[in-house]
Design a protein around this nucleic acid. Sequence first.
DNA 1: GTAATATATCGAAACGGTTCGATATATAAA
DNA 2: TTTATATATCGAACCGTTTCGATATATTAC
Lengths: 341, 341
Amino acid sequence: MKKKFTIRDVAKKAGLSLSTISLVLNNKGYVSDANKQKILSIIKELDYHPQRSARGLASQLSGNIGFILTEDHFSQSEPFYTRIFLGTEFEARKHNYYILLTTVGKNVKETYEIPRFLLEHNVDGVIIAGKIGSSWIEYISNKHIPFLLVDYVAPKVSNITIDNRTGAELVVQHFLRGGHKKIGFIGGDLRHPSIHERFAQYQSVLLAAGITPSEQWYNVDQSNTTSSDGYEAAKKIFNSNDNKPTAIFAANDAMAIGCMQYLKENGFRIPKDIAIAGFDNIEAGLHVEPRLTTVNVHREEMGSLAVRRIVEMVKEKNGVVTKTITPVELVVRDSCGIRMD
Amino acid sequence: MKKKFTIRDVAKKAGLSLSTISLVLNNKGYVSDANKQKILSIIKELDYHPQRSARGLASQLSGNIGFILTEDHFSQSEPFYTRIFLGTEFEARKHNYYILLTTVGKNVKETYEIPRFLLEHNVDGVIIAGKIGSSWIEYISNKHIPFLLVDYVAPKVSNITIDNRTGAELVVQHFLRGGHKKIGFIGGDLRHPSIHERFAQYQSVLLAAGITPSEQWYNVDQSNTTSSDGYEAAKKIFNSNDNKPTAIFAANDAMAIGCMQYLKENGFRIPKDIAIAGFDNIEAGLHVEPRLTTVNVHREEMGSLAVRRIVEMVKEKNGVVTKTITPVELVVRDSCGIRMD
DNA sequence: GTAATATATCGAAACGGTTCGATATATAAA
DNA sequence: TTTATATATCGAACCGTTTCGATATATTAC
């Protein structure tokens, strides 16, 4: 078992002081080119790597970024936020950071389980994904640590969001182009800004097209947006209703899939009788039959962006609030029966 | 901005030495009950929490566990290993650890991108998920750091695996019970022990039932096990073959789904013409039509077990090699058309 | 009653880096 | 030439813990 080398070993071997080694390690200050090369080659020779905790202690920087998810988002089967997490992980590596993932309850008080990485000063910045209680935002804000939200909004806080309005517009336009007039919507948890925007834009686009959405076409009463919520919402709309829509825009793919299930069970043909489109472009939409038309969201990219922004914030220490919107595209498959020629 | 307290503040306030505080912090040595209570209450009052990096430096323990995944497992759309990761994350918290996730190339040399957490001594143990090059196993072995494999095997290395044999047996017995004789298998990447075991047991069980599997019934030539591999394997079996199987056991759900797609496209009815079962019980199996009969694998639990074991290994420092097998159950849904009455 | 052991507390030395002046020399500006 | 500035290197302090004796007292064993 070869013992591990320290910066002292490097210094001794180079005949220079610790500080000089540290300077080249961090690319700071002034070091002559000759010595820099010498040190670098000794570092390579010894396979020396500075120890994270020692660095952390001295510099008061952990080299970690915290990723916070609420428990319900975490347990939701659909890996929407998981993909965002994977995006952060990938990007973090480029910046020599690690991501520490943790889940929390809706609100601070509720559980009093504060993420350990916040207490132990083990992260330099924090990314929060999805809807979260404002108490958490306040709590972290008071920690004076850089943080931002992904797929959520709060006043005076930087965030990365989805271009929900464009997405909703693309879907509704797609239906209109297919000749649909009675276009419905199913959704839930309108307090989530993404869902709310999708619903709001659905209404505006219809109105702009001269169509007033009937209350019998849409349902946004579900408290959540899972596939079983989609099933329930579909039931409410299609069960004994004399003014049924011919197309359904679901707030997300999970709901769309639940909705499809209800329709199929009740003898509706998709897309012949009812056209359906979702939002998010999750994997399952490919395996469902017919394959789901949806709006693609760049989840990994959102994670990347979040990390890049956090890294900036850690460096700059300034307080500029940025709001970044990521683009979306319509993904036309078979569940609407509308060609794109 | 309230400044953060250190162990010194606690000591001062308690009128005791640093060492005594440290002792109660770590539940070590002897501290009188009176002082212990006093210290504890001061800690609570100040909301003091020891700083991770300082601890790490002094104790030479990082409080982190590394989770290594090969790049191809990572990019595979099916979140099989992701779920294992989430299981580790959840369990780690109970033990006051964090998980550092990273992906690596198949082999050490290939990329020469060694996970930073190994170089910087930033993990106390390592979990490796899925198939990985033996060069990696050797490399980490030489680091003299506790590690184990999940869903993979290597000589003299602890691991957590799936009871693939029982799973395969359950599926084949299920087919036999349904009256099938010509039972096929599709798979790929036989060098992965899980796949290999499933295939081997499929053969043994058939033989034990007095059936010799025909080469026209199975295909294990795919290099991978994605849904498109399943599609291709199905094509090879069902495209102009005068001795077609009536049931297909797919090495995993992804392949089963690809196989279903091929069959549906080519006019086979499931399960009427061909019965299909998979393995893994991934989410997508619920959304496919008919819903996929499969074998449930406790992925989160495997992650939990892995963390518990690693924590033990870090504590014990002994070298006992353990091999843990996690159970599976048959999940009967609609793709085999066999009732369980 | 004395020796051995358990309990309680502390000072000081790690742990392995970063960073702030101090010092010295080379270069540019006046 | 003198002064200011850029370049180069170093020593020492510091980051916030843990842990190893040392010391002192209380308890138990014989």
